[in-house]
Amino acid sequence: MDEEISGKRFLWVTVLNLIITIVEILGGLVSGSLALLSDAFHNLGDSLSILLGYFAQLIGKRPETERQTFGYRRAEILSAFLNALFLIIVSVFLLIEAVKRFSSPSTIDGPVMLVVAIVGLLANLVSALLLHKGSEGSLNIKATYLHVLSDSLSSVGVIVGALIVTIWHIDWVDPVLTIGVAVFICFEAWPIVKQTITILMQASPKLDYLAIQNDIVAIDDVISVHHIHAWMIDEHRIIFSAHINVLDLPISEVEPIYAEIELLLKEKYGIGHVTIQAEVARGLDEELFNTPGDTNTEN
């Protein structure tokens, strides 16, 4: 029932965001306000984020297959990357247009800008109310809830600008607001781009590898650790593999060592998928991380 309610809330929030986007684009074109257009693209980005995130989440739940042995969890990472990249590209365009406005100022229809901005604020507040209850028990809903709140703050800024334009006819406030919104969008989007690229490039997560080495070697019958690899399937799931040198033991006595290492890595370091290869003498002289000159490969 909770998932159904959450799905309905996400649907209404998406619809409201799309309505805000359309209204602000039309209002921006009619009033000549670049700030309204920038806020519109901000809301459009959130709508795309919700839709892409929803469909990517459905794809990510598909089971592992012969061709996708780690499943489809990277679909959500690709979705986040494309959405954040889109926002940055749009923000750069808006920054360029805002700078042009300073050299070639245009007249802004303050009342139209004000009405549209108020409509946007009200819609964002309704969206925040729809998501507030669910944000207490779901990180996914909480993230969307915080995005909607940031949209509300952006709308408040546009309203203040519209009042200044309407009362004092200071049209240069509009490009200043545009620059502020565009910088704010980039500030939000860039960490997402950076994190998703890190995951897609299979960069190692931030782990204390020397501490991991010491903890594993401290286990009975483990002599050394080498050829460590660690990467992330998504922002939550870490994959880890390593070679360990152990005493010359039968497999039945090595398996409990595997289990102890897996439990250690899961509980202390949050690593969910572990692959260990046991060796006796092979690789004793190797470093913790494999270097290009090493000839050993994963088996």
Score class of each variant (00 low, 15 high):
Glu3Gly: 01
Ile5Ala: 10
Ile5Thr: 13
Ser6Gln: 13
Gly7Ala: 13
Gly7Thr: 13
Gly7Pro: 00
Phe10Asn: 04
Leu11Ile: 11
Val13Met: 10
Thr14Lys: 09
Val15Ser: 08
Asn17Asp: 10
Leu18Met: 11
Ile19Pro: 07
Ile20Asn: 11
Ile20Tyr: 05
Ile22His: 03
Glu24Ile: 03
Leu26Phe: 13
Gly27Gln: 06
Leu29Glu: 11
Leu29Ile: 14
Leu29Lys: 08
Gly32Trp: 00
Gly32Asp: 07
Ala35Ile: 04
Leu37Tyr: 01
Leu37Glu: 11
Phe41Met: 11
Leu44Asp: 05
Leu44Val: 06
Leu44Thr: 05
Gly45His: 05
Leu51Pro: 05
Leu52Lys: 07
Leu52Gln: 05
Ala56Leu: 08
Gln57Trp: 12
Ile59Met: 14
Lys61Val: 04
Arg62Thr: 06
Glu64Lys: 15
Thr65Ala: 07
Arg67Lys: 15
Arg74Thr: 12
Ile77Trp: 01
Leu78Gln: 08
Leu82Pro: 04
Leu87Val: 11
Ile89Gln: 03
Ile89Gly: 14
Phe93Val: 12
Leu94Glu: 05
Phe102Thr: 09
Ser103Gly: 03
Ser103Cys: 03
Ser104Ala: 12
Pro105Met: 04
Thr107Cys: 01
Ile108Phe: 03
Gly110Met: 07
Gly110Tyr: 01
Met113Ile: 04
Val115Pro: 02
Val115Ser: 08
Val116Phe: 07
Val116Gly: 06
Ala117Asn: 10
Ile118Ala: 14
Val119Glu: 06
Gly120Glu: 10
Ala123Met: 13
Asn124Arg: 11
Ser127Ile: 09
Ala128Met: 14
Leu130Pro: 04
Asn140Gln: 14
Ile141Arg: 01
Leu149Asp: 01
Ser152Tyr: 05
Ser152Thr: 12
Leu153Pro: 02
Ser154Tyr: 04
Ser154Glu: 06
Val156Tyr: 07
Gly157Val: 06
Val165Met: 06
Thr166Ile: 01
Trp172Gly: 07
Asp174Trp: 03
Val176Arg: 08
Leu177Gln: 05
Gly180Thr: 15
Gly180Asp: 07
Val183Pro: 05
Ile185Pro: 05
Cys186Ala: 10
Ala189Arg: 03
Lys194Cys: 02
Gln195His: 10
Gln195Gly: 02
Ala203Leu: 12
Leu207His: 00
Gln213Arg: 14
Val217Leu: 04
His226Glu: 04
Ala230Arg: 10
Ile233Leu: 15
Asp234Phe: 02
Ala242Asp: 02
His243Arg: 09
His243Thr: 05
Leu247Lys: 15
Pro250Ala: 00
Pro250Gly: 03
Ile251Leu: 15
Glu255Thr: 14
Glu255Ser: 12
Pro256Gln: 09
Ala259Ile: 09
Glu260Asp: 14
Leu263Thr: 15
Leu263Lys: 15
Glu267Asp: 11
Lys268Phe: 00
Tyr269Asp: 00
Ile271Ala: 01
Gly272Ile: 00
His273Ile: 11
Ile276Leu: 11
Val280Met: 01
Ala281Leu: 13
Gly283Phe: 02
Asp285Ser: 13
Glu287Asn: 14
Leu288Arg: 07
Phe289Lys: 08
Phe289Ser: 02
Phe289Glu: 05
Pro292Tyr: 08
Pro292Ile: 07
Gly293Asn: 15
Thr297Ala: 12
Glu298His: 14
Asn299Val: 13
